[in-house]
Simulated assay, not measured.
Amino acid sequence: MALAIFDLDETLIHGDCATLWSQQMGRLGWVDTEPFMKRNNELMAAYSKGELAMDVFMAFSLEPLAGRTPEEVAHLVGPWVEDVIEPIIFSEGCKAIAEHRKAGDRILVISASGTHLVKPIAERLGIDEVLGIELEVKNGVYTGQTTGTLTYREGKITRLLEWLDEQEENLEGASFYSDSRNDLPLLLKVDHPHAVNPDPVLREHAEKAGWPIHLWK
């Protein structure tokens, strides 16, 4: 059984779930929308350039969750996934997932977004296994902090290797689909890298390396 790994944001969905959730928190009244989104967009611009310090972004984006229970947040994330995320799921991504599943591959989503968003989105895609940034919970509420290794850049490899050990699996014959230069470390680690709607840096690398380039719309 080979592993088929998918990034989430701008790979399986046409957007960034953390940014879309930030907008939702504004609608919920959890944040002052204009200054919050200004800072969000500044940090995401750094991400696009491969310059983001992910711990800084997570501390910023999770602060509105501090003191809220996972159940409260999940209750609000569910309808948001249905209303906001489902319409922007790439149909070609669903087809790729189905093809891998038909081939008997094991499907995994690995994302640099928080698991409070990644897990319910993956569930809508029929995917149960997820690696994302874990949120710290103390005394039954979110602290606004993360825990463990962040699934970002080389951190995706660290977390994946830990998961492979736990699952008694390996990367032999594995595929990985991503849009971002930030995922080059993991793309270089698998047997079958795939560039999906790649950013300029990833596109250039994929063209030189002869990797498949998918333009999903």
Score class of each variant (00 low, 15 high):
D7F: 02
V130G: 06
E34Q: 11
W21Y: 04
K138D: 12
L215C: 05
C17E: 03
M1D: 08
S175Y: 14
R153Q: 14
D32W: 03
E34V: 15
H214K: 15
A96P: 02
G144A: 11
L52H: 05
P87Y: 03
V141S: 04
E207Y: 06
A59S: 06
R124F: 01
V31H: 03
H205Q: 11
M54T: 03
K156M: 13
L150C: 07
A103S: 13
H192G: 10
L135S: 15
L52K: 02
N139D: 15
E34K: 14
H14W: 01
Q145M: 12
S178F: 07
T143P: 13
N41Y: 09
K138I: 15
A206H: 01
L125E: 02
L171G: 04
K189A: 10
W30T: 03
G210Y: 07
A74P: 02
M25K: 02
V130R: 08
D83Y: 07
L12E: 00
Y152T: 05
E134Y: 15
N182Y: 12
K156A: 09
Y177W: 12
Q23F: 09
A66E: 03
I121N: 00
L12Y: 01
P212L: 07
V109I: 14
D16C: 08
A45C: 08
F176C: 12
G144E: 06
N182C: 11
G26C: 08
V31I: 14
P193Y: 01
K208W: 04
